[in-house]
Amino acid sequence: MDVFQVFIELAQSTVRLSTPLILAALAGLFTERAGIFDIGLEGKMLGAAFAAGCVAYISQSVYMGLLAAVLVSVLLSLVHGYASITQRGSQIVSGVAINFVVAGSTVILGEAWFRQGGRTPALSADGRFGTVTLPFADAVRDVPILGPLYSGLLSGHSPLTYLAFLMVPVSWWILYRTRFGLRLRAVGENPGAVDTAGISVIWLRYRGVICCGILCGIAGAYLSLAAGAGFTKGMTAGKGYIALAALIFAKWRPKNILFACLLFGFLDAFAIRYQGYAFPLIGKVPVQLMQALPYILTVILLAGFIGKAIPPKAGGVPYVKER
């Protein structure tokens, strides 16, 4: 097949597969930069995907589905926040707990409400996000090189995909160019200093957690309303953890998150496309190796063999006012 055509198709599926990763990793960015570690991204995404699937089916409205997803995800975030900010419990333990509670309850509730083996009923076109065709996409399709790039790669994605890519600069702007962002970053590095300045550490961290909930909710909604047509059991399939890996791989920086997620998305797309394909020189690459590659890369990075990933200094430590 035409190499250029292959490239366009690979790039297109890379974009599709990295969308939920970008949203979830940005979600993690907001809490982790505020000093709250969050390994519950997976659970929140799953809960959001489930809520979106249920509500979009019942109301036949994709926006109600999106809203429900964000609500559920924010609610779960607040549970995490309550446990780790107010109760000063272990953030890791709380994240693990949320992942389990959601993994179990989405199946139980889905089965009880819809009786379809843990999935929600398939959504009609009204209950899903369609694709956006950018202006002139059809007209320029036949222009060499630029035509396919524009109409094949840039056009024809779900609105949430555009939102995800837009959120990268927006998150950067919020974190690095607003007062809220400065304080949020400060609270993740040195909450004592923020407290001394008379700013509430607790409220700031809660806001970070809520931002995380909103973005995670959108990521979940993308899975069940845009990538799929309804919720299926365990549909996040580790994407929350890949997003977490991407966040670390990106050294907690918005721009790097974009590239890390695109890389992991590309690995996924590549693995799907070239399953069992014999490459020149290396021969067949086991599909399992491709699946494990994001995790292996993250471990190598964490070990400091490719630069050094330094987490927010106060991450994982509950803030206790001096007594």
Partner: peptide
């Protein structure tokens, strides 16, 4: 299991 982890662990 999740609830036990939540209440016996984080909370």
């Amino acid at each position: 299991q999740g609830l036990v982890i939540l209440f016996a662990g984080a909370l």
